[in-house]
């Protein structure tokens, strides 16, 4: 018992230190974003103010940060919706089975673990070649790559694998007797899906929406070579880290993280709510 107690406390200490390591830096920049007007990029705090948020609101550097903010927000919502809209039917197809299922599965896995720079290069290249083809037909200086074409695709190569894996796992634990009962009672396939299957896997669906939005909202590596003229917020942020030398950059970090935390909180809250309701019924 004594040895067991000692092991528990050693491991608990490791866990606590890891938590500190995980959240410490984040807490530091959130704190520093409330730095007083005379304060700098490092501690100590010189007063406490929302000065740098006001500065951020006015805009930092030459880029229009709030336009990028809006673009990333829209893209995140679209990626999230598309991830759900594509993964749910795909997972249903996997339950039925089809030719090439294993090949597609490993393609999706490959998409997940492929080095991001390779994916990004490939998509950027694909759109560049497409532009060249288009220009042989019509004279144009427009590019086909952009936020809702190449960047959207780049994000999907990252979010779809997560979505599919979560759903395949959810369906592996799914008790088929529920839908057989629904069918025996005369439900159509559509009714079975809407009224039985989707409500049961609802927590997983919320999880996928969360993955879709947050992974897109923060994505850089795959977007970097596959974005057209207008950058997403993380790309602008990376650029700003090299030019902005005031706590305004931390204020931007705090705002960006707040959006992520809001998304995470909403989703976890919804999942908890669903579980509570389920327990009550």
């Amino acid at each position: 018992m004594n040895e067991r107690g000692r092991r528990f406390w050693i491991l608990a200490t490791v866990f606590a230190l890891f938590t500190l390591f995980l959240y410490g830096p984040m807490i530091a920049i959130v704190t520093l974003s409330f730095q007083g007007p005379e304060g700098g990029l490092t501690f100590p705090m010189r007063g406490f103010s929302t000065h740098w948020f006001a500065e951020l609101w006015k805009g930092v550097g030459v880029v229009d940060i709030w336009a990028a903010f809006g673009r990333s927000l829209r893209l995140g919502v679209i990626v999230s919706a598309l991830t759900l809209a594509i993964c749910v039917p795909a997972a249903l197809a996997y339950r039925i089975g089809f030719r090439g299922a294993t090949l597609l599965f490993y393609t999706v896995i490959a998409s997940l673990i492929m080095p991001s720079i390779v994916v990004s290069l490939g998509i950027g290249l694909e759109f560049r070649l497409m532009d060249d083809e288009i220009r042989t037909v019509i004279t144009s200086h427009e590019t086909s790559s952009g936020l809702f074409t190449s960047a959207l695709g780049a994000h999907l190569t990252w979010t779809l694998p997560f979505g599919l894996l979560i759903l395949l796992a959810a369906f592996n634990r799914f008790d088929r007797r529920y839908e057989e009962a629904a069918r025996d009672l005369g439900a159509s396939p559509g009714q079975t899906l809407w009224l039985v299957i989707l409500p049961i896997i609802a927590p997983s669906l919320i999880g996928i929406a969360l993955f879709g939005f947050t992974l897109s909202w923060d994505e850089i590596a795959r977007t970097s070579q596959a974005i057209g003229g207008r950058n997403t917020l993380p790309l602008e942020l990376r650029g700003l880290t090299q030019t902005v030398t005031t706590p305004a950059i931390y204020a931007l970090g705090t705002v960006t993280t707040a959006v992520s935390v809001l998304a995470i909180g909403t989703c976890l809250g919804l999942i908890t709510l669903l579980r509570r309701r389920r327990v009550r019924h």
Binding site: I86, T107, L121, I123
Partner: peptide, 21 residues
């Protein structure tokens, strides 16, 4: 029909780009 969207996205944005690379 159910798997088509996933397969098409993977083809256009993953397999295609790799082959082109």
């Amino acid at each position: 029909a159910l798997i088509a969207p996933l397969a098409i996205v993977m083809l256009i944005f993953f397999v295609g780009p790799l082959i082109l690379t």
